[in-house]
Amino acid sequence: MSQHVVFSLPETAQLWVAKLALTFHKVNERTTLAHRQHWGPVRIQKMLWPEATGVCHVILVHPPAGIAGGDHLSFDIRCIQSAHAVVTTPGAGKWYKTNQKKAYQFINLHVQENSILEWLPQETMLFNGAHAHTKTTLHLDQHAGCILWDMLVIGRQARHETFETGQYHSEMVIQRDNQLLLHDVLHFVGHDRFLNSSLGMNGHAVLGSFFAVAPNGLRNLEQLDHDIDQMRDLITRMQVPVQITRLNELISARYLGDDVRQCHDAFAALRAKCRQMWWQLDEAFPRIWRT
């Protein structure tokens, strides 16, 4: 049965704290919530079951629609007992100008046993003057599978805004059975050489990262290389600036360009391909993406 518990207020808080913890499990061939906790303005907007296989689609909402100076958001998402959850957001996230105050976001994902998690937030916009610190940590059991992505838009493109002041620090850590698969760090400050260097953003405004871990029985390296060939063929037909590689048993794709919709569509196509190859599932795009 779903539980709804409120976090207690931290004793020493100079920050605006918001927390959300969710645990998904599988009951009678359908994934549902086993546990829910929240404190502050983060909620589940809606849970849907659009797939015949009982996969649970969840929309997370942060009503302020962005992260301001002094904010401290944390998410703890767990899939247990062969659950399969698809988690997304209703729209673009935002890191607002903070007037030198730091803002934080921590995302902890745990995928246990034979479970599957798809962590698919929509893009995040980094405003000029933001001081943003974010870390995503994914813990996988040996038999678990996962698809996740992150899309960063630097500056408000409609205003031709660039990142002149502030700081951005992002980490992505992926572990399986306490073995490190990936530790990806991105750090830059306002007017950083990285933003225009050919070894960095090269003047582009959108950077996307896509990661996928196949289920245990499909991690043969030759099989993964064959899967990547199919994914590359798909990207070639779409004619988008995405590069795909394999880091041992982890599949990684990167987008570098200026069109976040193009990035989203490319990653959605890669996700659909992984679902079909590994779990024999249809693409089943979250409905919120079409609104």
Rank of each mutant, 00 (worst) to 15 (best):
M47P: 13
P50A: 06
V55E: 12
C56E: 00
C56N: 04
C56K: 11
C56S: 04
H57I: 04
V58T: 13
L60A: 05
H62N: 09
P63S: 03
P64D: 00
P64H: 00
P64R: 00
P64T: 01
A68C: 05
G70K: 02
G70N: 02
G70M: 02
G70W: 00
G70T: 01
D71N: 10
F75H: 03
I77H: 12
I80F: 13
I80D: 01
I80Q: 15
Q81D: 11
Q81W: 03
Q81I: 15
V87N: 00
T89P: 03
G91W: 07
W95V: 13
W95A: 14
Y96F: 09
K97Q: 12
T98E: 03
T98K: 03
T98L: 04
N99Y: 11
N99T: 13
K101H: 12
K101Y: 08
K101E: 08
K102Q: 05
A103S: 09
Q105A: 07
Q105L: 08
F106Q: 05
F106V: 10
I107N: 08
L109C: 06
L109H: 07
L109K: 08
H110E: 12
V111C: 04
Q112M: 13
I116G: 08
E118S: 06
E118P: 11
W119L: 12
W119A: 13
Q122M: 09
E123Q: 14
T124L: 13
M125C: 09
M125V: 15
M125L: 15
F127T: 04
A130R: 05
A130Y: 05
H131R: 11
A132K: 10
H133L: 14
T134R: 15
T134Q: 12
K135A: 09
T137E: 01
T137H: 14
L138K: 13
H139K: 06
L140A: 02
L140Y: 05
Q142S: 12
